[in-house]
Amino acid sequence: MGDIKNLVSDSKKGKVSWRFKGELFSMEVEEIDQAIVDNKHNGIVILSGKNNNLPTRLTAVLSDGSSFDLSCPKKFSFYYLSEHAEIGISVVCVSPDPVNGWRDWHFGIDYEKKELFRHCPAY
């Protein structure tokens, strides 16, 4: 169990808040689609924005409130967030054309390089 507690995602107010070691943190996020705690990396992952009903922005937030945005992989669109046993929180991305036989893929977040990596197909 991680140190991040009480994650609240309020799309009407455009705000995500959480507690880390008893201290309250929050950030403003427009058009929140999904926010989830990444216990494996002690962070929070947020999908936001909309284009053709798909989220357009991916933000990784560290427990101390610092954050960085990640670009969507070429030829893919952000789809949804999911928990993955091997990589923590995965970002499922979809492609209009199959890539190695699949349209939906789990991408992991490399927090050091601040980039996504393709992990495995999403079934």
Rank of each mutant, 00 (worst) to 15 (best):
L116N: 10
L70P: 03
S11M: 14
A60I: 01
P98S: 10
K75G: 00
G101F: 10
V94C: 08
Y111S: 05
F78A: 00
V29S: 07
S48E: 01
S66I: 05
S26D: 13
R103D: 07
N53L: 13
T59R: 11
S67C: 11
A85I: 10
G108Q: 05
L62S: 11
W105N: 02
G108M: 03
H84K: 05
L54W: 03
F107A: 04
E86A: 12
S11L: 12
F20T: 04
W18M: 13
Y79T: 00
P55V: 00
V45P: 02
P98N: 06
C72Y: 01
P121I: 04
H106W: 15
F78M: 01
P55F: 06
D104H: 12
T59G: 00
P96E: 08
C72W: 05
V45Y: 00
P98Y: 05
E112Y: 10
G22M: 13
V45K: 01
G65E: 06
K75V: 11
N39C: 12
K113M: 14
F107M: 07
G43E: 04
P121V: 06
I32L: 14
L54A: 07
Y80M: 09
D3P: 00
G88M: 09
G65H: 03
F107Y: 10
W102K: 11
V61C: 15
S67L: 12
Q34K: 11
L54Q: 05
F117P: 01
Y80P: 00
H119A: 08
I36D: 01
S90P: 02
Y123I: 12
W18Y: 12
N52V: 01
E115D: 10
E112K: 08
G2V: 06
N39A: 10
Y79W: 12
F68S: 01
G49K: 00
K15I: 15
T56W: 07
P96S: 12
G22T: 05
E23L: 08
L58H: 02
S71Y: 04
D10G: 10
S17D: 15
D97S: 06
E86D: 13
K75I: 06
L116V: 08
G43V: 01
S17E: 15
G65M: 10
C72H: 04
K74T: 10
Y123N: 14
G101H: 05
N42T: 06
P73F: 14
Y123R: 12
N51D: 09
Y111K: 04
I44A: 08
K74L: 14
Y79M: 08
C72G: 03
S17Q: 15
L70Y: 03
S90N: 06
N42W: 00
P73V: 01
I109T: 07
L81W: 04
V94K: 03
E23Q: 13
K50F: 15
L62V: 03
K74V: 07
F78Q: 06
S77Y: 09
D10F: 08
S63P: 02
D33A: 08
P55M: 07
E28V: 02
K21A: 11
G43C: 07
H41R: 11
Y80F: 13
C120Q: 14
L116D: 09
E112I: 10
R57Q: 04
L47V: 01
C120I: 15
L58A: 11
H84W: 04
V8L: 13
L58T: 00
R118P: 04
L81Y: 03
H41Y: 10
R19N: 11
E83A: 06
K74Q: 13
F76K: 00
L47T: 04
